[in-house]
Nucleic acid binder design. Structure first.
Lengths: 198, 198
DNA sequence: ACCTGAACACCGTTCAAGT
DNA sequence: ACCTGAACACCGTTCAAGT
């Protein structure tokens, strides 16, 4: 028995280990050679699945966006009917992801100046549409097609709270009060806009 | 003449080159050996000034916080008297820094889980006090001592806008309208709170 | 006080060869 | 189709030695 010549699911195993390594020891510790070692294959076996280190990091990034989007969808599905409940639930899911996956979040939002991967771009776009859709939902269908400045402000605030929480600038015991404050700032503005549109 | 045995200002030269390399080719391109090459010294000369690569990155991070804080102070000094002018000027300075120094901003706000450098922590604290002080200024002296949730929401929004702009999720031509929207959301809230405190 | 040069253990990437 | 093993050029870090 032992391990067969073909690993069988090397690609998934590498990604799994990569996520763990990233969380435990940071981005610089995520090396193809170390991942190969942990998977029990030779140092050049990963090359079949990821043509270089960047390709592996891209796949990890896509995974991160997918996980975060799923967490946010779950939060939305579980929330109460009132707009402020949805907002609060999404903010909590976002921050919770940021605290549990700080290094992954950084990887997801690193700008990578000259870097353009289609799968990464589309996963990022999905998340962006989801969070900015929050605002559209509050405003009603009339406003869901345009990406208004207000949406971008709300998305920025969510992103900023998650960032500062992950960086420890917002302490764990302050998080709920900060989210509640954001809700109390934005909900009246959203309600007022909805009134104007009606 | 030529280059003397002692470089004379190697530390500053290394930091200067490091900032340029970071902006041009990203964090992974910032190697001690490449910096030594560019400075015209042996590969182990930098070790006198930075005991390891992390120490150099820490120094670069401190530089970043100092530069950003200076830009924000300048913006505050140049602004009009009205609170919304101050807010707008700071937001623009923040975003402008983020666009010009995307990789440096990432380095500054990377969480570095187990990483604690006193100089970095104190530079970060200075910036944080400066941006959150914005809100205190609007609220009057009564509120400047406590870090209220509202301050943290405002700081988060500034940080989020800068992040999303640097990552290209907010397009350059959308930035001014997003900043104006943030001003129009927060200024009435700040004015209202000030009224309650008076 | 500051810098050099050799040494060591790591890394990404490439490629002929094996199964 | 998938994996191995050797090779190459890079890197951070250490340390005895030079100026």
């Amino acid at each position: 028995m032992s391990r067969p010549y073909h690993h069988g699911a090397l690609r998934d195993a590498l990604l799994e280990q990569a996520q763990a390594l990233l969380a435990e020891q940071g981005l610089s510790a995520v090396s193809l050679r170390e991942l190969a070692r942990r998977a029990g294959v030779s140092h050049s076996a990963p090359e079949r699945h990821f043509s270089n280190r960047q390709a592996l990091l891209d796949a990890l990034t896509v995974r991160g966006f997918t996980l975060l989007a799923a967490a946010i969808r779950q939060a939305l599905a579980d929330h109460g009917d009132r707009p402020e409940d949805g907002f609060r639930a999404v903010a909590r899911a976002y921050v919770s992801f940021a605290l549990d996956n700080a290094a992954l979040l950084e990887l997801m939002f690193s700008s990578k100046a000259g870097h353009h991967d289609d799968a990464v771009a589309s996963a990022a776009e999905d998340l962006f549409a989801l969070t900015s859709g929050l605002v559209g939902e509050s405003l009603g269908d009339k406003a869901t097609t345009s990406v208004s400045p207000l949406r971008l402000v709300v998305v920025s605030t969510l992103q900023g709270i998650a960032d500062l929480a992950a960086a420890g600038r917002i302490q764990p015991d302050e998080i709920d009060s900060v989210i509640d404050e954001a809700v109390s700032v934005f909900i009246p503005v959203l309600m007022h806009r909805r009134g104007q549109l009606a």
